[in-house]
Design a protein around this nucleic acid. Structure first.
Lengths: 235, 235
DNA sequence: ATTTTTAAGTGTAAATAAAACAATTAAAAC
DNA sequence: GTTTTAATTGTTTTATTTACACTTAAAAAT
């Protein structure tokens, strides 16, 4: 036997929801779709899965193509499979969500896709079922970040506590008491204080911190609680 | 255009990890695979996705075939996609995990699959990458049940607090103080005490409770905390 | 009938964690 | 040197979680 008999075959694709943070707003990276149907419309970066690769490899390949970056935080989100989600032919697409340090990303690498960052609050209309993919990715990010220290993936290697707090506040659209916030994050043992300060945000300057990578990997799976009242937050 | 050009097409399947609880042990339902390759080996219940259905529909169809049951708790888990995971031809499989009330399930409905319940601790060897699927499903169940009230899906409509505690203890392989446990579950407002007792487990008998369905659906997305010290539990 | 056995049911105090709250300080700008 | 701005830091109060043991209902045994 070299094929299963009488089964319908289709295409498999991946679509990537790429999150970045510019210090103000949580954003996602969109491209202008380069082929029909819906050519020229805003779209998630995606592509077909090749015969010799799995979904993780496909999404990594596609992200590298667009951003030039390797080894970013990448997580399988959900597989979308409505028979008619792609009008051309049946295509089952697995959505991945990626977190990148927006500063590392260089536009010129992928000029052919005309990529642009859009604030989550001001997304353009997306093709197919990608709106739903983005909604799910937002929910997942909020869910996961309430419990695990993944937000660091959106920041540069050196960051300040006020920057980190801004990020949390913007993802959860809330405000957090800064005394309690800094107590909490420092109590995790994940941060190492640097000697230098970031002077860009204020006159006094704020000390840089770096991740303690050892503790980071060791504690990644344990629960955190950065967000006040997670009991009452609905995701 | 009526097809994408020069792309490789393949099969899509679903595989179901079906959990049940017999009062003692957490179990999963396996079948004897009915076709080659690996015919006659223990396997998850699964099947190919048809042209006119999405993955949720496919998994529901397959679960109905095996158990005769509709509308059980069912959640997409992860899509497994290594190019050679199925030796016959490329098949990308999406794993679903299902929670059912083991009492509702009737063996005779699906005699052709020779299904059997196996305690998680004593699983037979499974085909392909299904071992990995089961591992992931176990992790997901423990993760999710620590935060959301999904364990009720494994119990009959009327259950006792000691039964519920047994279930939690067996899923987390731990012991919980019964005073604290009952305080916690009653504090959720999810349980309605019945007049009758279950006399099967003890001389004195334990009062039955039922889910308050209104609160159940309303609070499903909020976090719970049934498990002592979730901060220190590693999933 | 009385006693024994078994698991169900229940309350309080101590410890820990989370929330509320405001004054001081570093450094640039003027 | 004075002003301005945001960073930094600690304590008190409140809420939650944990630890801990005796009483009771009901069947079974005598």
């Amino acid at each position: 036997m070299n094929r299963y008999y009488k089964q319908s075959r289709g295409l498999n694709a991946v679509d990537c929801i790429i999150f970045g943070f510019d210090g103000e707003n949580l954003k996602i990276l969109l491209i202008k779709r380069g082929f029909e149907p819906e050519k020229g419309k805003w779209s998630l970066m995606g592509g077909f899965v090749q015969a010799n690769e799995n979904l993780d490899q496909a999404s990594n390949r596609i992200l590298k193509q667009l951003t030039g970056l390797d080894g970013m935080y990448l997580e399988q989100l959900h597989t979308f499979s409505d028979p008619d989600r792609d009008p051309i032919e049946r295509t089952i697409s697995t959505a991945y969500f990626a977190l990148i340090d927006l500063n590392k990303y260089e536009t010129q690498i992928s000029a052919e896709y005309h990529p642009e960052w859009f604030a989550l609050k001001r997304l353009p209309k997306l093709i197919f079922d990608q709106q739903e993919m983005v909604e799910m990715a937002k929910r997942r990010l909020r869910y996961k970040a309430a419990l695990h220290p993944i937000m660091f993936e959106l920041l540069p290697p050196r960051f300040t506590i006020p920057q980190l707090q801004n990020l949390y506040e913007s993802v959860y659209n809330t405000t957090i008491d800064k005394r309690n916030f800094s107590k909490r994050v420092l109590a995790t043992g994940l941060l190492i204080k640097q000697d230098e300060k970031d002077k860009s945000g204020s006159k006094r300057g704020a000390f840089y911190y770096q991740l303690n990578m050892q503790n980071y990997y060791a504690n990644f799976q344990s629960f955190l609680n950065f967000i006040p009242n997670p009991t009452h937050l609905i995701f």
